[in-house]
Amino acid sequence: MRPEGKWRLIRFSITALAMFAVWMLFVWSLDLFSLAAGALGALGIASLTYDVFIARHQANLRFFLPRPVHLAIYLCLLFLLIYQASFRMLAAVVTGRASPRIVHFKTRLRSDFARMVLANSITLTPGTVTLDLNDDHLTVHWFFCSTTHSTAAGNEVKGRLEAYVRKVWL
């Protein structure tokens, strides 16, 4: 019972702090009123929804707390990959040459949050769109398909992204 309650408190406080941070980003002022309203709102909503945002079985802090240095490197890599894929897409629009396919592959990431980030990053790069994410199984529409073999396609599509997400979130 003891560790259960402690874990619940940790999840609750992380949810409340994250909500308060987003609220402060929105209002961008240090008035007493906005601070109080934000704190009250964050506590109220977190007490209702902490179980939805961080499920009970995600039992590791590194499942949802990023490592800051690696997060910054990851964002830079993401921008680089977006522009690289954009130029490839630009060439495809001009020449009209493409080979779209739907491929399936698995990811080795373990937490729901990291999988969500990986799926979002895959969608963000032009040329690949995530159609479905079911536990660790991703369905991706790939515009420059070279292979339909699951492992090889997975390496081509998620390759460097997954390696870096693993460093940030586990």
Binding site: I82, Y83, S86, M89, L90, A92, V93, G96, A98, P100, L124, P126, G127, T128, V129, H141, F143
Partner: peptide
Amino acid sequence: FRFPDPYSRLQASALCGTT
């Protein structure tokens, strides 16, 4: 306008809508 199906249009329009 160049590609014939919704998926390819989505991929190409990501150039305009994202990048």
